[in-house]
Amino acid sequence: MLNMGGPSTVPETYDFLRNLFMDGDLIPLPFRRIAAPLIAKRRTPKIEKQYSAIGGGSPILKHTELQGARMCELLDELHPETAPHKSYVAFRYANPLTRETARRMKEDGVKRAVAFTQYPQYSCTTTGSSLNELFRRGRAGEMGDIEWSVIDRWGTHSGFIEAVAQNIEAALAKFHPSTRSDVVLLFSAHSIPMSVVKRGDPYIVEVSASVNAVMDRLGYSNPFRLVWQSQVGPAAWMGMHTGEAVKGLARLGRKQAVLIPIAFTSDHIETLYEMDLEYMQEGKELGMEMQRADSLNESPVFIRALADITTQHLRDYSAGAIGPTSVQMGLRCPGCENMTCDQQKHWFARAGRS
């Protein structure tokens, strides 16, 4: 289960930030090996305060482990041919890091594995970066002899869409029936640098597809917008920014809104701090009535969706109906100049064989 991760305790914040800024797939920095530790050190006190404000660390590991365990329980029933199933968490920037998970898998003697991104929508800054790191560990022999296949995107899967829609309906139910249909739905996703967008990254269109699928499920019951959060640094990032959108709605007289995490499946700092403590508070100070749709966390509908996605993948792969990777995963961004991406895609297309 591949994800960005987050520091489980406040003292882990610096290491998390350093790992994040060291990742050229996510944030292209000049002189990265020198700049990344310096930027991380400068930002650490501020981010430590944010993690302290949400309870002393990120809960994303707890949620991911629970989701994985319950998914595997369902998988044992849905696809007994490959049982027993076991989930491993491989975070990109926080413990358990991919290299640690690689060692565990080798020690456990794993021979068949599915790299299952926990980012519903594909971006080379998220799923691509995690797969690049997994490829580096696999090529180096750190995981032993494993046959791999990949679930690289699932942002329009019916179970995922249903889980998100149900949480939106629960948030809308908190508004008075007479004004409920006027409530603005603000779908908020982690932004990416415009340099990434311009090279042809599919993330923007895939997040948009998720939003439209949710709205279709809701019968387009409310006005809605897709906005972007969590920009870092002075470079241009995809907008409009979520906080600015909240201010704009208030200025235009739209006084009711629901914030919806559409690219985050578990609570972490972007939902618990940015959404709950920044944007929600900004809205209330501007006289708005705000709700935040819950993250998917322990949603049984969502966990069943994870199991259904994996079951279908295992069945199709075993039957030869699909290869180790999707057709879409094999296409590099038209402006890609990262040769690791090319090598990674070919490696997974051979089921992780050298």
Rank of each mutant, 00 (worst) to 15 (best):
L2F: 13
V10F: 03
N19L: 04
R33V: 09
K46I: 13
E48N: 07
K49L: 12
G55Q: 06
S58T: 07
P59I: 03
L61T: 10
T64I: 10
L66C: 06
G68Y: 01
G68I: 01
A69N: 08
E73G: 10
T82Q: 14
Y88A: 03
E100T: 13
A115W: 03
T127M: 03
G128R: 03
G128I: 05
G128S: 04
F135K: 04
E142C: 10
E142A: 14
I146V: 14
T156C: 12
H157M: 07
H157I: 08
A165R: 05
K174E: 00
H176Y: 06
P177Q: 01
V183Y: 00
L186P: 07
S191V: 06
P193T: 05
K198P: 02
K198W: 07
E206W: 02
S210A: 11
M215W: 03
Y220F: 14
R225Q: 09
L226C: 07
L226D: 06
V232D: 01
A235M: 15
A235F: 12
W237E: 02
G243P: 05
L252F: 11
G253I: 09
V258Y: 01
I260D: 01
I262G: 00
A263D: 08
A263C: 07
H268F: 02
M275I: 14
M275Y: 11
M275E: 09
E278N: 08
Y279T: 01
P300Y: 11
D308G: 08
D308A: 13
I309S: 02
T310A: 14
Y317E: 09
S318T: 15
P324L: 00
M329V: 06
E337P: 00
H346A: 15
R353E: 14
